[in-house]
Every structure is written in structure tokens, then in C-alpha cells.
């Protein structure tokens, strides 16, 4: 079975990073660190919903809950 954190990290790097900022880890602040802006977060939410067949309510798709890969995994598991 795929490791969820690995899958999310891979998507984050592919979708949001370039050569200058691809050293992202599970704990790297994504939103507060300026890697993912709150407006671009929507593609991450859509990816998680499609990949894990869940629906994340807008109220839970907050910058705090999306700030690290570890926090995103916690969020996804809440809705699985």
C-alpha cells in the first residue's frame, strides 16, 4: 500500500516546486512558508479528494490544516 505522506509530498513537489525550492519535507511549512499560496491550495484539495475519494468541507480546508504534509495526512484520515 502506498505511503500517504509520500504520495502527498510527491504531488506537492510536482505541483508547487521548482529547482529553487524542491527540498520540501513532511514538516516544511507550505502555506506560511510561501510555497503554496492560499489561492493555489485548491488544486491540492482537489487532488486529495480525487485520490482518496473523500470530500473535505471548505471550513476544514484551512491554511492551518494544509500547512505541512503531516498535517494534511491527519486531515485526510479524518475524512476517510
Amino acid at each position: 500500500m502506498e505511503n500517504m505522506k509520500e504520495v502527498i509530498l510527491e504531488y506537492v513537489i510536482e505541483e508547487y516546486c521548482d529547482e529553487e525550492n524542491d527540498d520540501v519535507t513532511f514538516e516544511t511549512p507550505l502555506i506560511s512558508g510561501g510555497i503554496v499560496d492560499s489561492f493555489s491550495m485548491v488544486s491540492l484539495k482537489r487532488f486529495l479528494e480525487n485520490k482518496y475519494k473523500i470530500s473535505i468541507p471548505d471550513a476544514d480546508a484551512s491554511p492551518e490544516n494544509f500547512d505541512t504534509v503531516t498535517k494534511i495526512e491527519v486531515l485526510v484520515k479524518r475524512f476517510q
Binding site: Y16, D18, S40, V42, S43
Partner: peptide, 13 residues
């Protein structure tokens, strides 16, 4: 402007 609009949105690098 995009926030005021009902259309879906996405972004590219």
C-alpha cells in the same frame, strides 16, 4: 476578481 466569480479556479506555475 476570481474570488468574486462563481467559476472554479486553478493555477499553473
Amino acid at each position: 476578481g476570481m474570488r468574486l466569480c462563481a467559476a472554479q479556479h486553478d493555477t499553473f506555475k
